[in-house]
Design a protein around this nucleic acid. Structure first.
Length: 321
DNA sequence: AGTATTTGACCGAG
DNA sequence: CTCGGTCAAATACT
């Protein structure tokens, strides 16, 4: 395992960024005019995700920041924490407000389709309810860096604010995404429209932190929340959702000086609902349980794609770590 | 047995 | 110093 020169890594970042730009262009060409085939859509998303993962990892290395928790035994705390804080700053963040009405069964269903593992909880100053910290279950096995924070709103106990950080790069979740995407399209008509579901998601999406130069060329950072209109079509297949997007570029403008990396495209990790693992850590909504809606099985043509990505990832990791 | 959660300690940022 | 985020040992769960 040789060391990779700094300039080489920069070159790789540049190349990958360019490739990502092209893939985005392809995406734009495909979707507005006609309905591209599902496979094409998924393919493009996968390409973009691959680029983002690679760029993110390289950028973290470039900053001296990536600590692969994969198969690491006794990494000293003093080092790890430092890296993690650096990493945190560069991660895209966005939040959602999720409203739950404990319905007929007194049981609210919360599930965003991802496997989260709780790793901490803190009392937050000025907030009546503690904040819970979750990371992706596949962090150690697949190096997935996605995390989220969940905190109950002070006033309205039925509203939770969920702050997401980082995109899921784990294979399992990507499969789940494409599955759910299809599922939603069918379920949106049947379930959501007619019947009052036990889970009312008044969902708001704020991109707190992001860097997005090339994905949306005509897009300049607005200072006020805007409708998410030029991003992803599948957002609009969910009629009961209220989604707002806002960018606050300040944090990365100060920190990410040279390389461009990580365009968030938060829609890729579309449909974060709510934490499935939110179970009575602290009494409040103890009955909030994961209950992933059973899904009719679609045969997935994108399976191979995701697997390829995993191969790519492991090779990548082998190469650099 | 393995896996997930709890919870106080630890650490960096401000 | 305080505060927010994370770690990790102990504990609970399956």
């Amino acid at each position: 395992m040789e060391k990779v020169g700094v300039s080489e890594k920069k070159t790789v970042i540049t190349v990958l960024t360019e490739g990502k730009k092209l893939a985005n262009e392809l995406k734009r060409q495909l979707h507005p005019t006609k309905n591209p085939t599902e496979a094409c859509d998924v393919l493009v998303e996968s390409i973009l995700s691959s680029y983002e993962n690679a760029i993110t990892l390289l950028a973290l290395i470039e900053n001296g920041g990536f600590e692969p928790s994969i198969s690491i035994e006794g990494s000293p705390r003093s080092e790890g924490s430092d890296h993690n804080s650096k990493k945190r700053k560069t991660m895209p963040r966005w939040s959602e407000h999720v409203r739950i009405s404990s319905g007929a069964g007194g049981e609210a269903q919360l599930d965003d389709g991802y496997n989260w593992r709780k790793y901490g909880q803190k009392d937050i100053l000025g907030a009546t309810h503690p904040r819970a910290y979750y990371r992706c279950t596949h962090r150690n096995t697949q190096g997935c860096l996605a995390t989220k924070q969940v905190q109950r709103a002070d006033e309205d106990p039925t509203v939770f604010e969920v702050i997401y950080r980082g995109k899921h790069s784990c294979r399992q979740e990507r499969l789940r995404q494409s599955k759910e995407r299809k599922e939603q399209e069918s379920l949106a008509c049947s379930t959501l429209v007619s019947n009052g579901p036990s889970l009312i998601k008044t969902e708001k999406r704020d991109v707190i932190d992001s860097k997005d130069e090339e994905d949306l060329p005509s897009f300049s950072f607005p200072s006020t929340p805007i409708e998410c209109e030029n991003v992803e079509p599948q957002f609009f297949s969910e009629p009961n959702r209220f989604i707002t997007t806002s960018y606050s570029p300040s944090s990365f403008l100060s920190s990410a000086t040279s390389e461009s990396y990580f365009s968030p495209s938060p829609c890729l990790v579309n449909d974060f609902g709510f934490g499935n693992s939110l179970q009575s850590s602290e009494s409040d909504f103890g009955e909030i349980i994961s209950n992933p809606t059973p899904i009719t099985d679609f045969s997935l043509g994108d399976l191979d794609i995701s697997i390829d990505e995993v191969d790519f990832e492991s090779h990548f990791l082998d190469e650099f770590f």
